[in-house]
Amino acid sequence: MSELVTGEAVALEVRPARLPSRALAVLLDLAAAVAVYIGVTIGLVAATASLDEAAQTAISIAVFVLVLVGGPIVVETLSHGRSLGKMACGLRVVRDDGGPIRFRHALVRGLIGVIEILMTLGVVACIASLVSARGRRLGDVFAGTLVVRERVPAGQAGFVPPPPPWLVGRFTALDLSAVPDGLWLAVRQYLTRMRQLDPAVGWSMAERLAGDLAERTGTPVPPGVPPAAYLAAVLQERQAREARRAFGDGAAVGGGQVGAAGPAGAAAFPAPPAQQPAAPSAVVPPEQRPSVPPSAPPRAPGAAPAADGPADRPSTGFVPPA
């Protein structure tokens, strides 16, 4: 497991990829890129045979940059950290907080990878991966990413309990842009470990995290909502937005319902306190009770309604003409 520890003294439960699996994934990616590069080069040589030597050299350099440098960047961006070699080895590139990478992360990893993988034949990348506690190379350090193993046994993965059903979709309008990745990581790891903590310590930690999250979002915690349930609901809303951004609008339906909010979510957090029934009113003496006109007797089925008489019509204050 990873040895990354948050400010709340909670360890990050992920499995970082080590050097052997990462080296095999890089070799597979390089083999695929070189095969594409050779095919494109052969085609361009046949197509540019009539050009001079300087033009052919410029085209060769452009093809090298586009295929061997730009190709991995595009693939990692479109696949959200899963290249061909990483998919074969069960690896994936994620951010430090566990979220999917974006173009800027893939760009930094690709540009630095040219130096530490292509120009040095992988020597710098191997040394950096051996020295790092989580097996990161220089591209991961500068990009703020981590290569993790996706094929983890289900029993060993950290389980984040879903929020109660009465909180699902309640924070769809919340502004989460100012919440840093470190706070998201602390919230996630608290939720995975909250049942292992002392109740008093866990409650105070949840209150502190909920207060920090409410301060970043600019919206206070709704009254009557337990802090742990609030954290789970906001984290699920953030995961729903990440899924919609990564896979489209069809990845999450119903305003953030990514995780199943069924009996497990209802049992993980206490429900809001039930409202007390209204106190019975004082007994009013019969002589002080307001008079209520008697209701009309029930009509027989099929009988025509009786015409309203003068006594039944409300007074308008005017006398009809004679």
Results as ranks from 00 to 15, higher is better:
residue 4 L to D: 00
residue 6 T to L: 04
residue 9 A to G: 10
residue 11 A to N: 04
residue 13 E to F: 01
residue 14 V to C: 05
residue 17 A to D: 13
residue 23 A to V: 10
residue 26 V to E: 02
residue 26 V to T: 09
residue 28 L to Y: 03
residue 28 L to D: 01
residue 30 L to A: 05
residue 34 V to D: 09
residue 35 A to I: 06
residue 42 I to A: 14
residue 43 G to M: 13
residue 45 V to T: 10
residue 54 A to D: 13
residue 55 A to K: 04
residue 58 A to N: 04
residue 65 V to F: 13
residue 65 V to N: 00
residue 65 V to M: 11
residue 68 L to Q: 09
residue 74 V to H: 00
residue 76 E to D: 14
residue 77 T to I: 04
residue 81 G to C: 14
residue 82 R to P: 12
residue 85 G to F: 12
residue 87 M to C: 12
residue 90 G to H: 08
residue 92 R to W: 06
residue 94 V to G: 04
residue 94 V to T: 15
residue 100 P to C: 00
residue 102 R to D: 08
residue 106 A to Y: 05
residue 107 L to S: 09
residue 108 V to E: 02
residue 109 R to V: 11
residue 112 I to T: 05
residue 121 L to H: 02
residue 125 A to S: 12
residue 126 C to V: 15
residue 132 S to A: 04
residue 133 A to F: 02
residue 134 R to M: 05
residue 135 G to H: 01
residue 135 G to R: 01
residue 137 R to A: 02
residue 139 G to H: 06
residue 141 V to Q: 12
residue 142 F to Q: 01
residue 142 F to A: 04
residue 146 L to F: 11
residue 147 V to Y: 10
residue 152 V to H: 15
residue 153 P to S: 15
residue 154 A to I: 10
residue 155 G to H: 15
residue 155 G to R: 14
residue 166 W to T: 09
residue 169 G to Q: 03
residue 171 F to W: 04
residue 173 A to M: 08
residue 175 D to K: 05
residue 176 L to F: 12
residue 177 S to V: 04
residue 179 V to G: 09
residue 182 G to L: 03
residue 185 L to N: 01
residue 185 L to S: 02
residue 193 R to A: 14
residue 194 M to E: 05
residue 196 Q to T: 04
residue 199 P to T: 13
residue 200 A to M: 11
residue 204 S to T: 13
residue 206 A to G: 15
residue 206 A to C: 11
residue 206 A to S: 12
residue 206 A to M: 05
residue 209 L to M: 14
residue 209 L to G: 12
residue 212 D to A: 10
residue 219 T to F: 02
residue 219 T to I: 12
residue 228 A to M: 11
residue 229 A to N: 12
residue 230 Y to L: 05
residue 231 L to V: 01
residue 232 A to N: 15
residue 232 A to T: 13
residue 234 V to P: 06
residue 234 V to E: 08
residue 236 Q to K: 02
residue 237 E to T: 06
residue 239 Q to A: 14
residue 240 A to M: 10
residue 243 A to V: 09
residue 244 R to I: 00
residue 244 R to Q: 14
residue 245 R to S: 15
residue 246 A to Y: 04
residue 248 G to N: 09
residue 248 G to C: 05
residue 251 A to C: 09
residue 251 A to F: 08
residue 256 G to Y: 01
residue 258 V to C: 06
residue 258 V to W: 01
residue 258 V to M: 09
residue 260 A to Y: 02
residue 260 A to L: 03
residue 261 A to Y: 00
residue 261 A to V: 06
residue 263 P to S: 07
residue 263 P to E: 07
residue 264 A to I: 00
residue 265 G to D: 02
residue 265 G to S: 01
residue 266 A to T: 00
residue 273 P to N: 03
residue 279 A to E: 14
residue 286 P to K: 00
residue 286 P to G: 08
residue 293 P to V: 09
residue 296 A to Q: 10
residue 298 P to F: 06
residue 299 R to I: 07
residue 303 A to D: 08
residue 303 A to C: 00
residue 306 A to Y: 00
residue 307 A to I: 04
residue 312 D to A: 15
residue 314 P to H: 03
residue 318 F to L: 14
residue 318 F to A: 13
